[in-house]
């Protein structure tokens, strides 16, 4: 983490880019890193914690090996995303914000992926998929392997 702190401490408003970089490197923002981040950015620990908890992207614990985001916003609703959500929760046996027991998949809500002309949309890691019905979702998840 030290090199990251070095890069971002001098950037104006560098806290968000730093948090993104930490999460990119470690997969999450470990609570025990907060004191170092606070010191480097000249902030209180409460301020850093406040920022982490404000933004949906930042997580305080590790995610699964893959992250599945299902769009829950209106354009996808109009194309049946509520069914898709229910299917995903049932078949993965987890709710939003949870990770499957084998650590393979974390399920997250997302409000719009900008793919609204070909809904329902999901994102798996950095790839967006269009027109995803329950069967297609199953196939995409099966392809993930491990």
């Amino acid at each position: 983490m030290a090199p990251l702190l070095e890069v971002y401490r001098s950037q104006p408003g560098g806290l968000l880019p730093l948090l993104h970089a930490v999460q990119q490197a470690l997969g999450y923002i470990p609570p025990e890193a907060i004191p170092d981040i606070a010191r480097a950015m000249n902030l209180s620990r409460a301020e850093v914690h406040g920022v982490i908890s404000f933004y949906h992207d930042f997580r305080a614990e590790p995610a699964g090996r893959h992250t599945l985001q299902i769009c829950r916003a209106e354009a996808c609703q109009a194309m049946g995303s509520r069914d898709l959500e229910n299917h995903a929760r049932r078949s993965l046996a987890i709710d939003f914000g949870e990770t499957t027991a084998d650590g393979a998949v974390t399920l997250e809500p997302v409000y719009c992926l900008g793919n609204c002309a070909c809904s329902p949309s999901v994102r798996i890691d950095d790839c967006v998929y269009a027109r995803v019905d329950p069967a297609r979702l199953d196939a995409l998840l099966a392809e993930l392997g491990d």
Partner: peptide, 11 residues
């Protein structure tokens, strides 16, 4: 930030 559902013109 293009947050509105149903929009993708910025993207």
């Amino acid at each position: 930030d293009e947050g509105d559902s149903g929009t993708f013109a910025d993207r």
